[in-house]
Design a protein around this nucleic acid. Sequence first.
DNA 1: GAATATTAGTTTGAATTCAAACTAATATTA
DNA 2: TAATATTAGTTTGAATTCAAACTAATATTC
Lengths: 153, 153
Amino acid sequence: MKKAKNQKAALALELARAQNEMRSKMRQVIQTKISALDPDLSFELLEVIGLLWRSDGINQQEISDRLSKDKSSVTYLINALVKRALVKRIEHEKDRRHKLIFLTDKGKQIRKVIYPLVLESYADACGDIDLEILKQNTVMIREMTKNLDAFGD
Amino acid sequence: MKKAKNQKAALALELARAQNEMRSKMRQVIQTKISALDPDLSFELLEVIGLLWRSDGINQQEISDRLSKDKSSVTYLINALVKRALVKRIEHEKDRRHKLIFLTDKGKQIRKVIYPLVLESYADACGDIDLEILKQNTVMIREMTKNLDAFGD
DNA sequence: GAATATTAGTTTGAATTCAAACTAATATTA
DNA sequence: TAATATTAGTTTGAATTCAAACTAATATTC
């Protein structure tokens, strides 16, 4: 019993390393592409922008949750985006604790140029991998995260 | 054709987010466990130590490659480990460019206490996920990384 | 063998992450 | 309603990451 469990855990450790490798490579590829277009736009800033393209007007806490970034990191990144005039911070009318983050026109417009590059990079990574395998894998990763919640917290 | 490709890419983007989430949670769980034992040992330092447990005496470049960390990050982390007397830096006799990194006795000994905790965390994450699925996914991630090499560089 | 290129590691400064303590606003409870 | 707890966001300082320029050592080429 114990042996099998440890074998699986050791394999999961390798999976984690493989994920790090993929993330590192992916970051590098995307960063290179966008730097050519806009030298002032980092991969991390793009992560936030990319989320807002899908969900404009959410608050910082939700950005923090959905990008798995510490909320102080989000404060830092939003400040940087505000400085670049890519987003605006707007207090929630009813609950003034919430700061809603909205894309500016500029923030919306760069989507046309940037998003295709990001998508292209991920398409390259996918190669001819089967769509179902990809889905299955995503489900598995999410399940592993959920399993940790059951213990960790 | 284009549609299908984009659909897969978008899914890969979700996979990447799921991986971030898992890494973040994993980091948090493991950091909490080891902080209780040794408040002076970070997750990142442990990543290096953990590699050395398997491959003692490799040089910094190899550590950099295998952990997907920038070599300047490795310099920083090794310095921190040397300060804590967990590893030693030894110049390669034949090629003095290489600095070989060796665990000290202390570095070896903490394995008994720490490694089980790490393994346990990954075992928790695995839950009752099928071993074959786990293997298959690791292979897939590595393939995605390799696909990027074909383009990115 | 000298000139050149490549490789491993360091240094530097800026960017990002992290945890902990903090402030302000709202929700809950007595 | 007053006291307390919870929530969202900020601030702080330290840790880590990153890219670029740099040094030293070795390999390659002429």
